[in-house]
Amino acid sequence: MTGPAAGTDAAGLGRARAVGFVLPALVLIGVFLVFPALWTIYLGITDYRLTGLAAADPRVVGAENYTTALGDDRFRTSLWLSVQYVLGSAVIGQAGLGFAIAWMLRGRRGPVRRLVEGLVLLSWILPSSVVAFLWIALLDRDGGTLNALLGTPGAAWLLDHPMLSIIVFNTWRGTAFSMMLYAAALESVPPSHLETARLAGASTLQQLRDVVLPRIKGHILTNMLLISLWTFNDFTPFLITAGGPEGRSEILPFYVYTTALRGGQLGFGAAVSFLILLINLVFALAYLRLLRNRNRDHDHDHDRDRDRDHEDAALPGPGPAAVPGPAAVPGPPPAPGSGRAPASREAAG
């Protein structure tokens, strides 16, 4: 049964052992992530509540929770605020700042680089509850540090600009990841290429666009995917604004928290959670699509890069999610972006 695998299986793993290796991870993810997620989907079509009659005997109400949510102004406001939050703090803030820092620090060693890197990372690794306290102290109306520094006593940052506050907060908090990813990406750009472009009279902007960007597209997309997902689900700023004042910073995770856990409407909260999951999925599919297209273009240009690109392409696989498990079909077609036939004999055997 494992015979035909020999050529693809340098470590002599064998099918049984390979499955055994994946099994612990699969069981853990299945039990603690997938199963509760499915449970959430079920809860979403019930009127389950934390207390009262519906707690003892929840009723299936079908799509009612979904129509209620989609018709609720508060939900739509939340969604819009979430979009602002992701665009402002992740796409522009973290990715933009992260790239700027990585670009400025590129190719240098020594104390400045280590200092900046260390500090940016520091704001990322600090415990969330700790940083929340720090930011409350910083932005506080009376005796807040920012007011003391700017000489604007009584300016209520968290009340007047709640969204701006948490966007700046999350930018501060999460830039490290983008910075590190881009720093690594920029190391893959040969300095000689930049040198040549500079000698040819290219401006910094032109160098970025024509030399750097094409080489690090994959990193950019991966980074955008991860930070968008993280930011969309981010709950940390709840400790700072709690969604207030008057819901003006109530991004979607807060909305779920206040309706489901505080309001006790578990069924409704579950339905909204599922909507969040769907939105995440749309994000992910869009990025994966871009990533695949990139790989396809890339393969035509750089034959030698094939093997490494192949690994990127293998992740999304052919038609992710839409066609679950194409590998179940004997002899799966090569992934469209892979550029070389994957060793498909195993599935056939």
């Binding site: 695998a5 693809t8 299986d9 340098a10 470590a11 793993l13 099918r15 390979a18 499955v19 696989g317 052919p318 679950p324 498990g325 194409p326 590998a327 179940a328 799966p332 994957p342 060793a343 498909s344 195993e346 599935a347």
Partner: peptide, 8 residues
């Protein structure tokens, strides 16, 4: 390293 059923 190993391509098995349902890998994708």
């Amino acid at each position: 390293r190993f391509r098995f059923r349902f890998r994708t």
